[in-house]
Amino acid sequence: MISINVNGEDRQVDGPEDMPLLWALRDVLGMTGTKFGCGVAQCGACTVHVNGQAVRSCVLPIGTLKDAKVTTVEAVGQSEQGKKIQQAWLDVEVVQCGYCQSGQIMSAAALLQHNPNPSDADIDAAMSGNICRCGTYVRVRQAIKQAATGEKVAMQTIPNDAEAVR
């Protein structure tokens, strides 16, 4: 049994030390928000935060985590930056198939955590490890800007709550 701290809770994982965190999350703890895309740290779909830093869980052995604090997409909304990012994602409507988006959100939230006002170049540098096969890059960039500055930089969508119906 290996104990790992996920989203503030100590969880027990029955698996070998060298098992990547991705599979501990998905198949042992049943937290499938973190996605498998490549398994070789080339796509970013599996991105989680370890001690606040965006890392690729598909190549991170659980045995190396020790006391590190893991945050996954299921809980990223609990941080101020994560919440802002999720809201911007909704307003700008970033997602398409959505499969890469857990990873995009995690990378973006980590970026804002460390750089509250990133330039386009900063965004490109921090986000280029995340592949989106649907090609949502333009909106990812816009949504991060919007989350950071509050300025509406792209076409906004109308929320679907009942009140908004005209």
Partner: peptide, 16 residues
């Protein structure tokens, strides 16, 4: 940024 930084990062310490 695209192909290398996910593992190597910028501070020389490596990641994962």
């Amino acid at each position: 940024q695209g192909a290398c930084a996910s593992c190597h990062q910028w501070n020389g310490k490596g990641q994962q």
